[in-house]
Design a binder for these strands. Structure first.
Lengths: 279, 279
DNA sequence: GGAAGTCCTTGATCTGTATCAAATCATACG
DNA sequence: CGTATGATTTGATACAGATCAAGGACTTCC
């Protein structure tokens, strides 16, 4: 029904196909989800810094805001994926997928030839991700820490969304936000200097996962310098140098590898090349 | 009801707000659309190399595939925009817009501080464009040649799409394609060399507006070298040099400023850094 | 709590593309 | 048709960020 840890790769996938289940077996499916999620929570309890909590079998799709009927049909489609930190190829890429992050953090990576990879984006709790099938380039999801994810085949998800306005709206607004963010990234990659890119990245992270703090924010970055570099089109060395400069300029302070304290968010936005004084 | 040419700027906007019209006045609106489109067709007949044809007042929204009722309500929302080549600020950016290209070619530009602009994309006949309201950066549509466009306020367009599956589907699939293309661009901007970017651009254009030709395609590029450079994050000089190298390598040939003949599309895709040998 | 390994930072040098400058070409206009 | 004008191409140089190299710090695991 599901695969367990592979000791050779130290990777652990739990994938369960529910697509073949009829709706009459929904109770079995529901209990199975609980079973798996609890098992996974147990497995990763020691390794994961964040506790994994499910309020019940309906938790994964509850945030989609779907009505009861849609809800049940969604569950029938659900491919539940629990991923351990560092897992790549969380989804198979032979068909487009819609993935919902229930908990944790993932990166979406695209591969060009010659092994170069671009991190298309980072995604956190409640984010939707559209993962296209392999085409001119290959896309893969990769867990940054222990994750709870729910994946749906894109075509069937969209078909289902047609009969549920809330779900459709939810999906649409997430897509529009994804498009806007992707365009912001294009602007950064095409026009901005290294300094501006790093500042832009920090501002974006502050807005998405930062805890408010004085005039700035507290950040606990789940991704490595390499991930950051691959995301904003810089090498790790350049990212590091720019962080140092921002620290010397008194805009941020750091402690350890992942803790970043943004001391002056407004000034950082200025560094990021954002438009000021909206008319 | 609409503004005419401004001799100082040599720009010509025709914008008509139908939002205040009630549905009972739909006939007036319909005839007005005909009137304006004909007038515009006449005005630009000499200047434009392509003839502008409307089969009737319903033509602009017919390609949306909406049912009759949706159709009428769409028309009530329609802000018809005819734009002459070089027009910028085709849409106002105080609110998000959904724009449909009925005919012509436009670019979507984003402005960072310091006057740097990034061309987010080029759009052609039947393309949808989501133009977000001004936020951290300002977005503007700009006509590459004489255009027929139809613009809708985004929020109301989406609300309308909720009650029409075809329209919704249409919009959704266009959004997904836009997201995929934007991600491809991010990959190019973040990881690819100048040579690869130019090749990628040419391949993309061949697929979208190219006429099949032998092992390649015939292209009539409506945009300048500057537009291309701003789109793929290079200067006009670098774009020019790469074009020269591709020409010397026998992959393309050019005549005039806009005519490009792709002689070997497969080889060009190789240059573009696309994945080969899909498994 | 110590060792190992990985990730990060800092320094020196190199390279691809930007920038600056000038010549040439294409297109529109008289 | 020739000419004007802006766009494109070509050449020389400069610089931001990549690459190469080494040292230092944080985690993790025993």
């Amino acid at each position: 029904m599901f695969s367990v840890s592979d000791p050779r790769t130290n990777r652990c996938f739990h994938e369960t196909e529910y697509e073949t289940f009829g709706l009459t077996e929904i109770n079995d499916v529901a209990s199975l989800i609980i079973q798996i999620s609890l098992m996974h929570a147990k497995q990763s309890a020691a390794a994961s810094p964040t506790s994994i909590v499910f309020t019940g079998a309906t938790a994964p799709v509850a945030s989609l805001g779907a009505n009861k009927a849609t809800h049940l049909r969604l569950q029938a489609l659900t491919r539940y994926v629990g991923a351990r930190s560092g897992d790549s190829r969380v989804t198979d890429n032979s068909a487009s997928q819609v993935v919902l992050v229930v908990d944790g953090a993932v990166k979406l990576i695209a591969s060009a030839s010659a092994g170069r990879t671009q991190v298309m984006g980072f995604y956190f709790k409640d984010d939707f991700i559209y993962v296209p099938a392999r085409e001119t380039h290959a896309y893969n999801l990769c867990a940054l820490k222990d994750c709870e994810l729910v994946a749906f085949p894109a075509t069937e998800f969209i078909r289902l969304a047609q009969s549920d306005k809330t779900l459709n709206n939810n999906f649409l607004s997430h897509l529009l936000r994804a498009l806007s963010r992707c365009r912001e990234k294009s602007l950064a990659l095409g026009q901005k200097t290294a300094r501006e890119r790093v500042a832009t990245f920090l501002v974006s992270m502050a807005e998405r996962i930062g805890a408010p703090f004085s005039n700035g924010a507290l950040l606990d970055l789940p991704m490595s310098r390499r991930d950051i570099g691959d995301n904003i089109g810089l090498t790790i060395e350049t990212v590091s140098r720019q962080m140092t400069e921002l620290r010397n300029a008194g805009l941020v302070s750091t402690s350890g590898r992942s803790q970043v304290k943004i001391l002056d968010l407004a000034a950082l936005k200025q560094e990021a090349g954002h438009l000021s004084g909206l008319s």
